[in-house]
C-alpha cells in the first residue's frame, strides 16, 4: 500500500494528456484541475506539469475558515467539501503553488484530489495513468527512494523536491538539471 505520485519534470513533452485525463475523473465535472506550463516560451518548447503537491502541512487547509479542505488518510489533500466551502477563496491566495481553482457561479473551490476514488485503492490517478512520457509516475516508497538516490548527486546538482519546494509534500519531484545546463548521467 501507499504508492505516491512522482514527477520527472524534464520528460514532459507538452501533450496535455494529463489535463484531458483529469477532466474525466469522477466528480471533476469535465474540468481539469492541473496545469502544464511553458518554461521558456520564446526560446524552446520545454513544458512542465504542475499540480497540487499534497503538502504534508497544507497551506490551503490551514487558511480555510470552514474546514472544508480535508486531508485523507493516504495524505491526499482533498477538494473542498461542497457543503462546507463558504467561498472566501483564502485557499487560492494561500497555496504556495497557485493550485486551487474557484467557481464564482457555484461559490465553490475545486482542486486536485489526487483522484481519491482511485488512489485510495492504489490505482494510479488519471494523470499518471495516461502520461505517455513517464513524467508522471505512480511509485512505491522504495522506488522513489531509489530514484532519489540517483538524483541526489554529491555535487548537489540533481536534487529531488526540497529545497525547491516550500515544505514537505506527498508528491515527490525530481528537479531537471538539464534545463540548468547540467547533464543527466543515467
Amino acid at each position: 500500500m501507499g504508492r505516491k505520485l512522482f514527477l520527472e519534470l524534464e520528460n514532459c513533452i507538452g501533450c496535455r494528456s494529463c489535463l484531458a485525463a483529469c477532466t474525466q475523473c469522477g466528480g471533476h465535472d469535465q474540468r481539469n484541475r492541473n496545469y502544464v506550463l511553458d518554461v521558456n516560451p520564446f526560446v524552446n518548447r520545454q513544458t512542465m506539469p504542475l499540480m497540487c503537491l499534497h503538502c504534508v502541512n497544507p497551506a490551503c487547509a490551514r487558511s480555510c475558515p470552514a474546514q472544508a479542505i480535508q486531508i485523507h488518510e493516504t495524505g491526499a489533500v482533498l477538494s473542498a467539501l461542497v457543503e462546507k466551502c463558504i467561498g472566501c477563496q483564502n485557499c487560492t491566495i494561500s497555496c504556495p503553488y497557485g493550485i486551487p481553482k474557484f467557481d464564482v457561479e457555484q461559490n465553490l473551490m475545486y482542486k486536485c484530489d489526487l483522484c481519491i476514488d482511485r488512489t485510495k485503492d492504489d490505482i494510479p490517478p488519471m494523470c499518471a495513468s495516461v502520461c505517455p512520457s513517464n513524467t508522471l509516475q505512480w511509485l512505491t516508497e522504495e522506488e522513489i527512494a531509489e530514484k532519489q538516490q540517483q538524483h541526489e548527486m554529491e555535487n548537489g546538482k540533481w536534487v529531488t523536491s526540497m529545497p525547491y519546494l516550500e515544505s514537505e509534500t506527498n508528491v515527490k519531484i525530481n528537479l531537471p538539471g538539464i534545463l540548468q545546463g547540467k547533464e543527466k548521467l543515467f
Partner: peptide, 11 residues
C-alpha cells in the same frame, strides 16, 4: 505563483 514555481524548478 505557478510560473514562479516553474522558475524554481528550471532555473
Amino acid at each position: 505563483r505557478r510560473k514562479y514555481r516553474i522558475s524554481r524548478f528550471s532555473g
